[in-house]
Design a protein around this nucleic acid. Structure first.
Lengths: 116, 116
DNA sequence: CGGCTCGTACGATAGGCATCGTAGTACGGT
DNA sequence: ACCGTACTACGATGCCTATCGTACGAGCCG
């Protein structure tokens, strides 16, 4: 066998060069997804999908994670039954320097202002 | 009479405190609107709607400008028959410092990368 | 006044999308 | 082998939206 993958199941991610700004912005324009990204940014490592306690069903949660992955905002990988999620900081910072930090800062400011 | 308005027709804008990050991101996630904003950012003053040569009908153009205005990204004011458009740099920079510049830089980088 | 340009309003249409529920697959542990 | 957990797939639904065309209103200029 080739190098043992983290799991037999692999998930399609856009290559770094295929990430489109419009898709990233669209992904982050949903409150639920922005919340996910903020939580991911505040965590040290990766987080499993089940770690999040969102006010929607699991089907919808799956949908949001897929949108984030397909837009290039997060990286997903299976680890056993869990699916681990991490921000694609490296790729995003290289493509759009300062953007992710500005977005996270903007979200934090709005949360503070509106009492989030 | 109160101070003479620029025109008898007035347009509804969100107050600075009512601008929501999600709405701004959603507004900018459309290629046509991102293009408009980039052009506005590169111009010295205000630009009329008719200045833009977009590959859509005038109805659709009106729609996009309204979305930008209602999300708080641009300010619109009538001047005779023309409708002048300007970025709300001041408000955006106060609410989300660095965000607008990061977005414009990101858009410029992508345009350069993809040959826009 | 008459016409011209700029932009709006309204209705229609087609596609996208956030959400749900149910049924199913993959993996790990007992 | 069995069960439970984690996540997915699929279909349905209702809303939002990008687009168009046509008809209209507002202001300028001759």
């Amino acid at each position: 066998m080739s190098s043992p993958a983290v799991s037999s199941r692999d998930l399609p991610h856009p290559a770094s060069g295929e990430i489109r700004l419009e898709d990233v912005l669209h992904a982050l324009s949903d409150p639920m997804r922005l919340r996910i990204v903020r939580e991911l940014a505040g965590a040290p490592g990766e987080l499993s999908c089940s770690h999040f306690d969102l006010p929607v069903t699991k089907s919808t949660t799956t949908h949001h994670f897929r949108v984030l992955r397909e837009s290039g905002v997060i990286r997903q990988v299976y680890r056993g039954t869990a699916k681990m999620n991490g921000l694609r900081r490296d790729d995003l910072d290289e493509l759009f320097p300062g953007l992710l930090d500005a977005l996270l800062d903007a979200a934090a400011r709005q949360a503070a202002r509106l009492g989030g």
